[in-house]
Design a binder for these strands. Structure first.
Ligand SMILES: [Zn+2]
Length: 404
DNA sequence: CGTTTTTGACCGGCGC
DNA sequence: GCGCCGGTCAAAAACG
């Protein structure tokens, strides 16, 4: 709820810093985000639905928030092709990654994600697997969890009646649901993804001065959890890890949801539009096409919707800029050095890029580690930008999902 | 008044 | 078996 008031302030300031420039260009550089997707084979769509919140946006920092949702969304969608297309489509906006071929994407996503990309984007690589290890230095967060692939959605319910004890099944440990981590550059720790979250805990992070907050989706039957923490070094970077999938659309979504397929089409279509109005673009990443087992999405309805309120003072940013990088993308990017200027990135100081105001997201497949989020600093591997305006929205209704 | 945040305690897993 | 640690619960407080 509070949304971003505080944040907004901060963000604003960022925005203020360079209003004009980034809007126009948003070079990948500026956005550098690193994403990681380790996703294992089955976990395709951990991410919930994206939704952008109109209201928050207004607040100010909100704009950036939008990106989040998208991010999430795009995971679900995960269609490499689309992504690419999108990106390509909107050259102006996203110079960054362009992926030549979707198919490759997929592969890359799954496997490549970790290794190959590393070169350019340190962050990604780090994050993924090694990241954990490497993490030590930085923050490391922890590596205990694991990732899970497959989907396990359901089980979580365990009864919590009892408190922390989990009476029920001991055999099955907890299933691991797919987790995705995003690194965002913003002073605000809580991004709005269009869903309502209730904070249920906060713990100090071992190596960081900053605490980690635990949030849970407030929807009745939805068990999606979100974990937010700040990089120990860069307070500007926030790592958000999502766990599970939403069983419902975002509250905010009044109307806009997109399905995978649609997404593709829309995206493409949309892009053109974007030019003028600034529509939003979504990136989907990670997933690859359905065919490949690796990323197949179990069937989740993905809804994506963005609301666009065009209003924000710095509408430019808000509307436009939302950089996100899916793992897939990242891989691509890495692959294409030319396109992706990634190298630079993240420096702790932001100084270099005026644009940093936007946020960088680094989606990571939490798979291996939760903390996938490596220190952003490391290097953003790739960056992409997304815009959201609402054009994409489609309405799709799927009631599918059933997980949980 | 309902909802969310805050916060300390507690649990279960892991390493030693 | 003990301690560390991340994660969660729940009671009370804070908000609106
Ligand atoms: Zn939910």
């Amino acid at each position: 709820m509070e949304r971003a008031e505080d944040q907004s302030g901060k963000i604003d300031s960022l925005l203020m810093m360079n209003p004009s420039s980034f809007a126009d260009q948003i070079p990948a550089t500026s956005f550098t985000l690193s994403g990681l997707f380790d996703t294992p084979p089955f976990a395709a769509s951990p991410a919930p639905l994206p939704a952008s919140n109109s209201y928050d946006i207004d607040k100010s920092g909100g704009g950036s928030v939008l990106g989040f949702s998208d991010l999430l969304g795009f995971q679900d969608y995960c269609y490499g092709a689309s992504l690419f297309d999108l990106i390509q489509t909107s050259p102006p906006l996203a110079p960054v990654a362009m992926a030549p071929s979707p198919a490759s994407t997929i592969h890359e996503t799954s496997e490549v994600v970790n290794g190959p990309m590393t070169p350019n984007s340190s962050s990604i690589s780090m994050s993924s697997n090694e990241a954990a290890a490497a993490a030590n230095e930085e923050q490391s967060k922890d590596c205990q969890d694991i990732i899970g692939e497959n989907n396990g959605q359901e089980d979580q319910d365990r009864d919590k009646t009892k408190k922390q004890l989990k009476p029920k099944k001991k055999n099955q440990k907890k299933e691991k649901e797919p987790r995705f981590a995003f690194m965002t550059k913003s002073e605000v720790d809580h991004l709005d993804d269009g869903y309502r979250w209730r904070k249920y805990g906060q713990k100090a992070v071992k190596n960081s001065p900053f605490p980690r907050s635990y949030y849970r989706c407030t929807s009745p039957s939805c068990a999606v959890k979100k974990r937010v923490e700040r990089s120990s070094e860069d307070s500007t970077i926030v790592v958000t890890t999502y766990e599970g999938q939403h069983t419902h659309l975002s509250p905010v979504m009044a109307r806009g949801s997109i399905t995978n397929s649609l997404l593709h089409h829309h995206l493409e279509t949309t892009n053109p539009n974007n030019n003028n109005n600034a529509s939003n673009s979504c990136f989907v990443l990670g997933g690859s096409s359905p065919a490949p087992p690796s990323f197949a999405v179990p069937q989740q309805p993905l809804f994506h919707h963005n609301h666009h309120h065009s209003q924000s003072p710095s509408s430019l940013f808000n509307n436009n800029a939302t950089p996100v990088v899916p793992s897939a993308l990242s891989s691509f990017i890495d692959n294409n050095p030319s396109t992706a200027p990634s190298s630079h990135t993240p420096s702790p100081s932001l100084g270099p890029n005026p644009f940093f105001q936007q946020r960088h997201f680094c989606p990571s497949p939490a798979a291996d580690d939760q903390h996938a989020a490596a220190p952003a600093t490391a290097g953003g591997s790739s960056s992409c930008l997304m815009r959201d305006d609402g054009l994409l929205q489609d309405m799709i209704q799927r009631s599918d999902l059933k997980e949980e």
